Amino acid sequence: MSRAPRPTELRLRGVSYENRLIDADLTARPGETIGLVGPNGSGKTTLLRCVYGTLAPTGGSILLDGADLSALGPKARARRIATVPQDGATEFELTVHELVALGRSPHKRFWEGDTAADRTLAEAALARVGIAELAHRPYPTLSGGERQRALVARALVQDPALLVLDEPTNHLDIRYQLEVLRLVRDLGTTNLLALHDLNLAAAYCDRIYVLERGRVVTEGPPADVLTPRLLRTVYGVEAEVIPHPRTGTPTVFYLPGPPVEQEASAM
């Protein structure tokens, strides 16, 4: 967007939240795109909420470039971290352009209005996510996929160093799933995102963390993590994992049949 982001490192050390997240360690190095995968209820959204501040961890620490995030106020945190939540509010009484321009709020005093530069940034973000023609539509009238792209545009305008996304491809058709993830990778930010689609995670993430029942059970490059044994153990499905013939990224092919008996998670 307006500048090249400053490289940012995120570290979680022993982070817990009640019984929903237990002793989670995670490192996102500057410029990396890190994927969180795991079954429903595994702790992905809880971990993300601890990072962007809607939940306060009950244990452990979260560091951004070595600084404890718990010491930052909401506005200071918002200057560094932009979020696209899974359950973003859907009834803003704003136009799409006005909603996107709110991404500039952390960088201004509360009484300051939008400047010409703010408007230019919002227009550029809307164009990048493919909804420039919807700028003057009321946000509540958009489809689910259009709303998701508007929330991504708002995060871009925030000019973050760390971008946190919870299921950013929800409600999007295939074209925009690929375009949004490609855009995220090309921003130059450090990115942390939860995904259900393992093939998208393999194609767009540098490393993957797998969560199960609130715990990180393994992490590493997609080719090391996405194995038939892991899919059987964590997801209870039989699958083959084959390198893509053009890209070489691991591609998961699920095999038909009833759920398999899950092994103990000793990854």
Rank of each mutant, 00 (worst) to 15 (best):
V129S: 09
F110K: 08
L99K: 00
E133A: 14
L126R: 04
P140N: 07
L99M: 07
D118V: 05
R104A: 11
E133K: 09
A122K: 03
L134G: 00
E123W: 10
E93P: 14
E123C: 11
V129K: 08
G113K: 11
A127M: 06
H97E: 12
L99N: 00
T115S: 15
A116Q: 12
V96Q: 02
E112D: 13
A124I: 05
T120V: 12
P140W: 08
W111S: 07
V129C: 08
E98R: 02
A127Q: 15
H136L: 15
A117D: 15
A89H: 15
G88D: 12
A125R: 03
T115Y: 11
E112A: 13
V96N: 00
R119N: 15
T115K: 11
W111T: 09
A124F: 01
W111D: 11
A117L: 14
R119A: 14
L126D: 05
T115H: 08
D118Q: 10
H107G: 04
P138A: 00
H107W: 13
E123R: 15
P106S: 01
L99A: 01
G113S: 13
E93F: 01
R109Q: 14
A101V: 11
A117W: 07
E93N: 12
L102Q: 14
E123Y: 03
T120M: 14
V129M: 15
